[in-house]
Design a protein around this nucleic acid. Structure first.
Lengths: 232, 232
DNA sequence: CAGTGGTCTAGACCACCAG
DNA sequence: TGGTGGTCTAGACCACTGC
């Protein structure tokens, strides 16, 4: 017979409760897996699963030999789900619209070239597009694409499918980074986004790489009042 | 002997590579755990561990009976680590400073009362504080604390330890949410933060709950030019 | 060196749900 | 209702690291 004792979920919950109740205090060493397995009447692997989950959540610190301790400074992790823009708008039950403003091969400015580690005589594909929700400006996409690494994008009809969406579907990447910031609307951005110059806008900069090769770098400027939510 | 075949990590990497190489295409059904276990010469549990990890990363969709498919729209998740402000500044090798601007019990405005689901005659502890990096304004903390649920905070010396830090160390919570946004500096905020009125500032609003009880709600306004980074 | 977590195995039962 | 993933077990070896 299997499954006589606790499930790893129930052990997870019990341990979390003990941490919350300060039965085990921050920094304190909790019993080893073998001891807990005996207490809960289950296999050590089951305890391991529960404690591993709690460690991933940042509630426990685990080290071989040293044992398992309640995290002193529980790292608060917020997991942001970054959807395709179209889906984000459709999930709000709004009608998605899209307008390609600009698309041409050109030499990127120095700061872009430096970040993407592109040779000085190399051109990139510059794309500007506006994403609309219910006909109103929602997001301004300003992007540089390394088409030498992604030649297929030159064949894509970017007036129908956004570069954002094309890349998600067609450009596997191995890594990258994201930066969130606030920026002040320039006159041009304000006109495009239908706000006043100087308005505070939420922006995301994203760069993605495949190995050592930069694929794309994008600045996504959201409309005024946009908020990005997540649960913790 | 154990550990003769592949490790779950190596299987994880192989499968990820196959997805990236389009050996298994988006939406496609991949072989079952038993088949893969045979192919890799390991136990099914090992394959399970690898595939579970990939599903958590959003690369696979798994369903009982239906099998495992390559995710059609790989959800891009960004994990934000939200540190204690002091640690964030110290990790930049800057000197942390802190100034308590305001601390008193008072009735919260309606929108705060509504969000926190506080009875209309209930007072909360209102705290304003400025966090400094190398003596310059870094973050403005504007917070409401439900001291009825956290009576100990009334005994804390918030002119030494920030409410932010006190709460992290002393207030276990079961849930909450975070919103990121951009806002325009009011005259008062601009004076405190040393910027011009109207400057675009990055802001985080956080609320935390223990069960059904709201513990605290905070608006954290960062200095001009602040960027929040994370890898993907 | 010895104790702890990390992992793997072979086998088993079960929950779910598409067909 | 049968196939698939989800989980549990008892036992084992290993890797890391504090003492």
């Amino acid at each position: 017979m299997a499954d006589q004792g606790h499930s790893w979920q129930s052990i997870h919950d019990i341990v979390r409760q003990r941490i919350q109740d300060r039965y085990w205090k921050p920094g304190e060493l909790i019993p080893g897996e073998a001891d807990l397995a005996e207490e809960f009447g289950c296999a050590r692997a089951t305890v391991n699963r529960a404690l591993r989950q709690l460690a991933e959540s940042g509630l426990l610190d685990r080290k071989r030999k040293a044992g398992t301790r309640v995290a002193l400074h529980p790292v608060r992790k917020a997991i942001l789900h970054i959807p395709i823009v179209r889906k984000e708008i459709e999930e709000r039950n709004q009608v998605y619209g899209y307008a390609l403003l600009n698309r041409k091969k050109m030499s990127p400015p120095d700061h872009v070239r430096a970040r993407m580690q592109i040779a000085s005589d190399t051109k990139l594909l510059k794309i500007e597009a506006l994403h609309l929700a219910d006909g109103k400006p929602f997001l301004l996409e300003d992007r540089w694409v390394n088409f030498h690494a992604l030649p297929d994008i030159l064949k894509a009809d970017l007036s129908v499918t956004s570069a954002n969406e094309w890349l998600v579907m067609n450009a596997p990447f191995t890594g990258g980074n994201i930066a969130f910031s606030a920026l002040s609307a320039t006159k041009r951005v304000a006109e495009l986004m239908g706000t006043q110059p100087g308005a505070a806008l939420f922006a995301i900069e994203r760069s993605t790489w495949e190995g050592e090769t930069a694929l794309t770098e994008a600045l996504m400027v959201y409309g005024e009042g946009y908020r990005m939510y997540t649960a913790i």
